[in-house]
């Protein structure tokens, strides 16, 4: 069982310092449950952040050096061709850059391997990989697929190991020149990000301003309904009716 984890040249979301991104470290963690030795793969100008993953349980890092702004896919494909892993894991999004989350899909497409997104648990039994996929609201889906495959990891996967200097010192880095692949599409215009207000997606949205205002203040602010000292039965009924009204409980089957 040979597992390769794709590592991005990630930056810490707050400090902006080179720092491995959480889902990639969680991927290392999942991979270590399948095999003792886990390798990492990074294609990019420098591997400082990816090198940090060595302290989080990665035994070996393969770095393919390509100029900044080049497409890493050809280099990754070449490295995967020579490493011949059974499983390639990736984070949900890269830890820096455009963060479209598209690369694992392009990789799977180019390799002709199946891809499963948002894994929280992995198990292998005789060449068959079982993936537990996280879906919204805590739902889970089980995939069974033949290896090789590409799997991305969800933040709900088990927490990554903390940094250990001893492990980092033992990690090996193999560096090689990658395949330059300048992107033909023009780079997008970039500006400093300014958070936009979340638009209120209530029933009143799109209606008059006053209705929108009322909807906004009722949803967020105080001033809900208060029942003082009802009988337990009244209280129970009021709660159930309220839960149904907001759609948390399904309508009673008998009605």
């Amino acid at each position: 069982m040979k597992t390769l984890v794709l590592l991005s040249d990630a930056r810490h979301p707050v400090s902006g310092r080179p720092a491995p991104t959480a889902t990639e470290l969680q991927a290392i963690n999942l991979a270590r449950g399948l095999a003792d030795e886990v390798s990492g793969l990074h294609a990019g100008p420098d591997a400082e952040a990816a090198r940090g993953a060595l302290g989080h349980g990665l035994a070996r890092l393969e770095h393919r050096e390509i100029p900044a702004g080049h497409d890493p896919l050809p280099s990754l494909l070449a490295a995967i061709g020579s490493e011949a892993p059974d499983l390639v894991l990736a984070g949900r999004r890269a830890g820096a850059g455009a963060q479209t989350g598209l690369l694992p899909y392009r990789l799977a497409e180019a390799l002709g391997w199946p891809i499963v997104a948002d894994a929280v648990a992995l198990a292998v039994d005789g060449g068959v990989l079982e993936v537990i996929q996280a879906l919204p609201k805590g739902a889970r889906r089980r995939w069974r697929l033949r290896l090789p495959a590409v799997v991305t990891v969800h933040p709900a996967a088990p927490a990554a190991a903390s940094f250990a200097l001893g492990t980092a010192r033992k990690g090996q880095v193999g560096a090689a020149i990658g395949i330059p692949a300048p992107l033909d599409e023009p780079a997008m215009e970039e500006r400093p990000y300014r958070p936009r207000p979340r638009l209120i997606a209530s029933a009143a949205a799109g209606a008059g301003a006053a209705e929108r205002l009322r909807a906004a203040t009722q949803a967020a602010g105080p001033g809900g309904r208060v029942m003082v000292d009802p009988s337990p039965e009244e209280a129970a009924q009021a709660i159930l009716d309220h839960l149904r009204a907001i759609g948390v409980l399904k309508p009673a089957s008998g009605r």
Binding site: V226, P230, A236, I239, L240, G254
Partner: peptide, 22 residues
């Protein structure tokens, strides 16, 4: 959004009973 001023210990069995009845 909905506040019931009552003893939670009393409301819990009533809720369970109401759900069962339904």
């Amino acid at each position: 959004g909905l506040a019931i001023i009552a003893d939670a210990q009393q409301v819990m069995p009533a809720l369970i009973a109401a759900l069962k009845a339904e």
